[in-house]
Design a protein around this nucleic acid. Structure first.
Lengths: 217, 217, 217, 217
DNA sequence: TATGAATGAGCCTTCATTCAT
DNA sequence: TATGAATGAAGGCTCATTCAT
């Protein structure tokens, strides 16, 4: 990548990071373009060189964040399976990942406000970014995250001699279920606190996952 | 109720109805106070006699709408059970209600934009409405909806000799699951169209409900 | 005075007292009619039965307050002269009264903000109150305060065998001088603190007063 | 100064001039930001690029106007002393300047409404203007007016072999005395018309000044 | 007389967006 | 490419005033 392109990417990243911080701490509506550019250390006009408007950068930030989060969760699972002797069954895998996500999100009251209700956005939607403003190649791995998670799960399950029926739907359903319920539970402790809800939620997940398992030989 | 109070109530209702229309057709952010009052046929200042700000009326409208919707669903179920010879099992009841909600919402592309992600708000949250501005008695039944839905289900199941474990959590989880997934499915047909998703969703519901049933006697 | 008139007077007094409190604590601009009536325990519409608008009540309050203040000062002087053996010369009398005013005002940071720049208003102006809304007879003594202070001084000086040249102008000049300078000195300690300024001011007063004395006989 | 900075200064000046006109003709309260910007030929938002709010521009205008006025008075005195054969004593100097101010102000019924009660503000207060929005160098002479007037008087008196006791306090007292009394006399002709009051006032000034003179040598 | 619900003009202020530099 | 001064539409909200009761 040419030096000038690297510089452009830096600017774009700086804007996205600033936007992320402000969206989570101040909220989307209260955050202004001026805030974003100021924090990123660029001029206001520069913003419009990279994003069409505020919703455009929000979408970019959500996708990037959700992707990253899931990536972390998967990495953590990999290590866990490598290092631990305890045998996990298929449902355990789903529960582990979801638990990971919930824990991360729960620790960050601000993150949940911003992203929880949109967790699956980063994974299943090919939302229309500003035309001609695609992510640069350096991020292209995460720009098509749909494959990632689905494929990741398929690989993970390779050794189990099982097949998951309607895997895409299952993933979608689980993510929405989790993000939606936890959003309310974490933020408002309604109808019960998180610690009380988690066992219940995990049980739901196991039910849905186990019901989707088909043995293959 | 005094003549003046009746008039006040009329004004409040007019405002809420206007807000509902505008929120669903134009979106919350694009809707202005001026729009609401204009449509309601009152002066701008009058708005502030009844609501603190735009979020305040949104909350009121959501609660009212969600409550009403669920009421309709329950009524429909009652009739169905009275008139039909087909025997419903416990899970059928849940599926029926949820199906009803989904169908109503699906027909109204606008409604879903506004309410779907917040369906459970009207049922589980005791958010603070403007103080001293309670719903008049004519709506007081739905002003404490928490009892309603839970109690309604309990009554409904009276004749089944069953008990539902963690009923409140089940209801909450189901509502969030449904509203969250259908929101995306209906609006964006992502990851699959509604007709394709519904059977899958219904199956999930049955799983969760059946797993919560405890036989009594 | 008829019972109904007494009641009317009570209302008017309540409004003026509320206005005084609010003007001094919140400032004239920030104070609203609603605030005044609320504090006075009457309805908003009632305000307009007694005063034309906010400036109208302000004028009434200033006059009343300034009058009262001066009255207190004069009373204090009377006692002082009765009880003390120390002989006061003519200038002492002026200094005493002015000192009294300054001390009262200095103690009340809020009072000075409101009235200091307008001290002489209550004494020399026959400002136009709302037409047909004159002070009731019970206050008529203070409604023509011009005579009061001038006559008071004349009486006071009776025993001194002196005449003051241009007494009205002297009084006006002194009051304006004092209120104007002290306003700034008390509020901002500019250009010097009050304690430092007072001796200087007193000296100025003595100069002006002594220069106005004409011996008689 | 760069071209853009010159332009900025022009805008700020235009705003201040418009504000001055409107404050004097319409009064501070009645004048709106919209009025000011409209008259200045800039957009409403532009106002907030230069001033925090209405009180901010008022302060700026008062300071600037008071400074300017005094400068004129001093200049006039200089010429007078150069061209005239009549010998002025020390008190004459003070009287001359004050007379000049009073005359200017008296001619402009509107000016007095705005500035008279605040004449000394421009000379003794170092109020906080909008931060980072200092007057450009072209006006910097008057931006520290405190030194100006005091030093000016000291210089003027150089040839008189006299020293003025408490010069700063004297100046402050005189300015407040004059502006305060003339405010009422000019606007309301209370308690007497200006022409009648002026000789009295001049006499007061002479008293105060002469009493402050200390012979040197 | 007294009320207070209703009014609606008009306020201040923000901020996305443009464009000359 | 990058800037940031300028824009001006639009927003939320206040509040003096009216008037039917």
């Amino acid at each position: 990548m040419s030096k000038v392109n690297i510089n452009k990417q830096k600017k774009k990243n700086a804007l996205m990071e600033s936007a992320y911080e402000l969206f989570t701490t101040e909220g989307f509506i209260k955050t202004t373009i001026r805030d974003i550019t100021h924090k990123a250390g660029v001029a206001k006009g520069t913003f419009y060189l990279y994003f069409k408007d505020k919703t455009d950068i929000r979408e970019a930030v959500i996708k990037s964040t959700a992707s990253q989060l899931l990536q972390e969760a998967c990495n953590s699972l990999d290590e866990q399976m490598k290092n631990s002797d305890v045998q996990m069954d298929v449902a355990d895998i789903f529960v582990y990942i979801i638990d990971y996500l919930v824990e991360v999100v729960a620790k960050d009251d601000l993150l949940v406000r911003f992203i929880a209700k949109h967790l699956s956005w980063g994974l299943f939607y090919t939302g229309s970014t500003t035309p001609g403003m695609n992510y640069p190649t350096s991020q292209s791995n995460s720009s098509d995250p749909d494959l990632d998670i689905e494929q990741y799960v398929i690989n993970k399950l390779g050794e189990y001699n099982v097949r998951i029926k309607d895997l895409k739907l299952l993933l979608f359903t689980l993510l929405e279920l989790v993000s939606s319920t936890c959003h309310d539970v974490i933020l408002y402790q309604q109808p019960v606190p998180l610690e009380e809800y988690k066992p219940y939620l995990n049980n739901c997940i196991r039910l849905l996952v186990n019901s989707a398992i088909e043995q293959t030989n």
